[in-house]
Amino acid sequence: MTRRSRLDRARSFMRNRSRVGLRRSRSSLLPAVQITVGAVGAYAFAEQVLGHEGPLFAATSALIALGFSRDPRLRRVLEVGIGCTLGIAVGDVLLAVLGTGLWQAAVVLFISVLLARFLDSGTIFTTQLALQSLLVVLLPAPDGGPFTRSADAIVGGVIALLITMAIPRDPRREPKGDVRKLLGELSGVLRENSQALTSSDHTQAWHALIRARNCQPLMDGLSGSLRAATEVAQISPAYRRHRSELGELRGAIGFIDLAIRNSRVFSRRLTSVINHAALSDEAVQSLAQVIEDTADAVDVLALALHSVSTAERDQHLRRAREDLAAVATTLHPARLNVQRLEGEGLVILYRPLVVDLLQATGLSHDDAAGYLPKL
């Protein structure tokens, strides 16, 4: 590799890295404001109103509770407050029994970690309880007494909760964006299957299977963002009206998860069908078109679930439902010119995927399955 090519690659890497970093910074602007206001506000309240000297625990507890984690925020607030309080209490008790010193600090930390894991599985809770108990042993007690730090932690957690309730941030934004990404991947999986079928390329069908398997991290992230959004809608008066919409979104996501799982099964079987040339040219053309039509309907469903306008959402849902219903009515081997047994099995495997997607549009299972022709 020449020196010029290495320089070009380095410049390209820096451009891409800068672009990603700027995008991430822009999306983090509001959380950064929340963290700054929460941490500094908690410190100022504990110092100016409660009269605590150097209330560092108030700032740190607010910062941790308002952090960038996708875990539900209310859980973080409770873990921080309770973990700090218990950690300080445990530290004070062990300090009175064992005294101060390095080996005492080691014993306190060991006992605190085991106690935290016994009480709760949360990593933040364990970290907070262990850290606070360790600091109680290593640091001198403040002028207001040892439990001054516990009060500071509670102040930070309460202010974090108030900021979560007060900042005008639509809780639907993140899960709706995540579900659009997930459906975009499902649409891509279907289109790759259609192309693999048309070109008789079993390797591309295998790539579609790998892509479908890689949807699981997106699904996990979506579940976390939806839990966080539901918590905000429950505790924030400004967004309680969105609780029913988030409930409907949760139901749709459950069926989308099933559809993705069925897409993995279908992709795996498609690889075998292509290897054995089990479909005629007419069957390949018909089935490939059905898969493309399904992908188009998934794109419309993504627009529906991403929309914040009720009228727009209902319009897209109706169109997605109609398009998927049209696909479902063709899912019979004879209608798709499929004759061999292996090809018939492929069509039968595709039917549950379309039913799952129809249910994601709001249909019941019986109504969705009713569009399928009887075998």
Results as ranks from 00 to 15, higher is better:
316 H>W: 12
116 A>Y: 04
188 G>Y: 03
127 T>V: 12
49 V>N: 10
188 G>I: 07
118 F>E: 13
305 L>V: 13
264 R>K: 09
288 A>P: 00
250 R>N: 06
184 G>W: 12
96 A>P: 05
60 T>W: 14
181 K>Q: 15
240 R>S: 11
74 L>S: 00
216 Q>T: 05
58 A>T: 07
372 L>E: 10
327 V>A: 00
90 V>H: 03
9 R>T: 04
350 Y>V: 14
2 T>Q: 09
179 V>N: 07
321 R>A: 10
268 R>T: 11
319 R>P: 01
223 S>A: 09
356 D>A: 05
126 T>C: 05
72 P>A: 14
297 A>P: 00
167 I>M: 12
51 G>D: 07
39 A>L: 09
22 L>Y: 02
37 V>S: 06
137 V>S: 05
261 R>H: 03
125 F>V: 04
240 R>A: 07
212 A>I: 00
230 T>W: 05
323 D>R: 15
130 A>G: 10
171 P>V: 04
100 T>P: 05
178 D>C: 09
47 E>W: 13
49 V>Y: 15
186 L>H: 02
156 G>M: 09
233 A>Y: 13
190 L>R: 04
30 L>E: 10
129 L>N: 15
14 M>K: 12
268 R>A: 14
314 D>F: 07
59 A>N: 06
10 A>G: 02
96 A>I: 11
34 Q>R: 00
368 A>V: 11
315 Q>L: 06
281 D>W: 00
26 R>T: 03
6 R>I: 03
247 G>N: 08
206 W>T: 02
283 A>G: 08
220 D>S: 11
346 L>K: 00
224 G>F: 14
277 A>Y: 12
49 V>W: 05
209 L>E: 02
138 L>S: 08
245 E>Y: 10
54 G>N: 15
142 P>Q: 03
258 L>C: 06
215 C>M: 15
216 Q>F: 05
217 P>F: 00
337 N>T: 11
367 D>A: 13
238 A>K: 05
356 D>V: 08
121 S>E: 00
187 S>I: 10
140 P>G: 10
327 V>M: 03
11 R>C: 07
127 T>S: 08
163 I>W: 09
162 L>A: 15
81 G>H: 06
112 S>M: 04
230 T>P: 02
87 G>K: 05
